[in-house]
Design a protein around this nucleic acid. Sequence first.
RNA 1: CGGGGUGUAGCUCAGCUUGGUAGAGCGCUUGCUUCGGGAGCAAGAGGUCGUAGGUUCGAAUCCUGUCACCCCGACCA
Length: 568
Amino acid sequence: MRLSTFPLHTTKETPADAEVVSHQLMLRAGYIRKLGAGLYTWLPIGLRTLQKIEAIVREEMNRAGAMEVLMPSVHPAELWQESGRWQVMGDEMLRFKDRHGNEFAYGPTHEEVVCHYVRQDYRSYRQLPVNLYQIQTKFRDERRPRFGVMRSREFIMKDAYSFHMDAEDLAREYENMRAAYARIFDRLGVDYRIVKADSGNIGGSRSEEFHVLAGSGEDLLAVSDSGPYAANVEAAETLPHPAPRPAPAAALETVATPGQKTCEQVSRFLDVPLTGKVKLLVVKGADGGLVGVALRGDHQLNEIKAAKHAAIADPLQMATPEEVEQAFGCEVGYLGPVRCPIPVIADFAAAALTDFVCGANQNDHHLKGANWGRDCGEPAVADLRMICEGDPSPDGNGEIRFYRGIEGGHIFQLGSKYTTAMDVSVLDENGQSVTLQMGCYGIGITRLAAAVIEQSHDAAGIIWPDAIAPFKVVLCPIGLEKSETVRVAVETLYGELLEAGVQVLLDDRGARPGAMFADAELIGIPHRIVIGDKGLANQQFEYKHRRAEKAEMIAATTAAVLERLAAA
RNA sequence: CGGGGUGUAGCUCAGCUUGGUAGAGCGCUUGCUUCGGGAGCAAGAGGUCGUAGGUUCGAAUCCUGUCACCCCGACCA
């Protein structure tokens, strides 16, 4: 490609509304342009990278045995009403009517549509298993689109759906997809982690996310410092306390703590560590009553875990201050498990405490030397808290460290959630109708482009890995207009590289060297060849890798260039 | 959807408090010089100041509505 005829629009200044580097650089390098909130045009250079990511995904999906299809992005409302998600999806789903007044949605995901298709054409166990995927535009009306293409409303996703006779075969395909995803992320050249996830409102049982590690990531990950364990913090389990609880040593004592309502205040006032305090949160129970959740003073409630507890209402609802006062006869700041009027569930860590401090269920008073079993009943015990940095890893290997990540892929074993609702079944070998097991597997194509930049850039611009660079090498001729020697050399090299199948960009704009170098670095081309009279006098080109500190001289031949490109 | 903020030239912004008929830098056009890290000089083109209404002799500036966009906030590929 010749830059003189290629529409490249770079800018020196950073647009004001771009917050994260990937967004800034994609705008400055002319990869994308904004149309509206969460809506972006991909310009020719950006599209080249996008298509390379798609190609890698497609290759690995095909290699894994999945079949590409293309489903409509506009979905009839009836399908979503059938699965029950017409209500559940809420405002995130863009809805509209056609000329007949019939309701439609712009597809945010395609479980309903594939299920509808599969139940049309799949009748027999002999046709299974099957894994259907597509690479297609989705629309989710995010409450807050941001970070450019990283969290946009319209985006390109690879979504795959597999169907199976039984859970074992679903588990097999899940592993197959997991391996395919690992190959995709490896080929993209990113540092990533496969992380246990909560399956959210898509539902189902087992679920993992593929996270590209980046400081600007929106997700917090709990990763073992010396073992394989990695989980989204919201899904990370915590372990029961390893040692048996010591016997009570202190006597129960009521102390006045006027105005001291928060754990921090009480801890300072009584000069006891936060880790020696039990706090009691009050939530709605599954039976409509109230339930107390006891946590250690320094810990935080994990609302997802709490909502999943059998005794607690799902979704989680905190009790109002009025409800608490009615039940306890005191304000929220003085609650505790001793003489507690409602059932208590204690987190592992809270249940492990001896001689702890807690609220006295009486305004302006706390208890010291409180003990489970002696001063109140032994509580029901469960894993209810957010994991912390420094906690032992749940798999027993090492300690937990936190990282930030960008969710680039997500795989689920859905089980029969949708196939039951949508009645997707086939006949088995005994002629019996069997509801299918389903898995789904997503990759955010447009988001990955941004994620790679977040992880691979410097002050001058983007640094693409070869695999997804819009061009592999850029040719920068110095004094193109003046020097016939340079012109002939660069044209020869350009032609021969094209012939060799190398994706090469020739900067034939006649720009000054500084402008050429700045653009080449900004748009992130991994290899650069400079052709100038100085070098040619010694039969040399200058080669520089985008990451290299300094340039090096190589022989002024196409063979030498190809050799250098292959070595990198 | 709540809370905060911003709309002025293609881009980044000044001007608004204290109304008087529109500015800078970058970019763009033309010419000359320059040519290994975003060149210099000169001459140009380009804005009904988001939009609708109101106040006023007069509104980018004050008032009201409205739209869009950005930032902070709990389920997302």
